[in-house]
Simulated scan of single mutants.
Amino acid sequence: MAKVLTEDRLNRPGGAPLKAAIAVAVLGVLGMLIVDHGPWSKPKVQPAFMASYSSTGEAARAAGAKVMPTEPKLQVEPEPPVPKPVHPVNPAPE
């Protein structure tokens, strides 16, 4: 009886979508590995003495951006508009 069940499972139709999904997954993983780890994706590290600008602000100014300081925060922040509780839900025992 066990032999018949095994043969039925091996010969049953409908395996084409599963095989296609596995092929797409394998090709996708291989494609990601090639793109991420190929010889063209090596980082180009620049030593400090070759860097053109020592700060982000200098680089922004060189690109023509106007660097402005942020507005200072208010000393006293306004209270958020929420209702204030009149009494606590569970008063602490004394």
Rank of each mutant, 00 (worst) to 15 (best):
A21P: 02
A92Y: 09
R61C: 04
S55H: 07
F49M: 05
E58V: 04
G31C: 04
R61P: 00
L5Q: 07
R12A: 15
K19L: 12
P43K: 01
L18N: 10
A20E: 15
A51M: 04
M68I: 12
K66N: 11
V24C: 08
Q75S: 10
G28T: 13
A48R: 03
E79L: 15
G15I: 10
M50C: 14
S52P: 00
E71W: 03
P39K: 04
N11T: 15
M50F: 13
S41R: 14
E71V: 03
N11S: 15
L33A: 13
V45W: 05
P39F: 06
T56R: 09
I34E: 06
E71P: 00
E77W: 00
L27R: 03
L33F: 10
P85F: 05
P83M: 02
P93V: 02
D8M: 14
L30S: 08
V26N: 02
L74V: 14
K42R: 15
A51K: 11
L33H: 05
V67H: 03
M50T: 12
H87R: 12
P47N: 12
R12D: 05
H87A: 10
P78V: 03
I22H: 07
E7G: 03
P88A: 01
M68P: 00
A65I: 06
V29P: 00
T56M: 08
A60K: 11
K44C: 04
V45C: 06
P85L: 10
K84M: 07
K84I: 07
V76T: 14
P93S: 00
E94L: 12
E77T: 02
P85N: 05
A25I: 13
K3I: 12
P83L: 01
P80F: 11
P81E: 11
P69N: 03
A51H: 03
K66A: 13
H87F: 13
W40A: 08
A25C: 14
L74R: 15
Q46A: 11
E58C: 11
M1R: 09
G38L: 00
V4P: 00
P91Q: 09
V24D: 05
D8G: 06
N11R: 12
L5Y: 04
L74D: 13
A2T: 08
P47K: 12
L27C: 06
K3C: 11
G64E: 01
Q46S: 09
Y53K: 03
E79G: 04
P80S: 08
G64Y: 01
G14N: 01
A21L: 13
L74K: 15
E94S: 10
A51F: 02
L10I: 12
D8P: 03
K19D: 07
K3A: 15
M68L: 14
N90D: 08
V26E: 02
K73L: 08
M50G: 04
P85A: 09
H37Y: 14
N11Q: 12
V24W: 07
V35R: 11
P47V: 12
F49Y: 09
E94M: 09
L30T: 08
R61I: 09
K66C: 09
L33C: 10
V45L: 14
V4H: 09
P80N: 08
P78M: 05
P80E: 11
P43F: 01
N11E: 10
K73E: 02
I34A: 15
G64W: 01
L27F: 08
E71M: 03
V29F: 07
L30M: 14
L74P: 01
P17D: 09
A59M: 11
Q75H: 12
E94D: 12
N90W: 05
G38W: 00
V82Q: 07
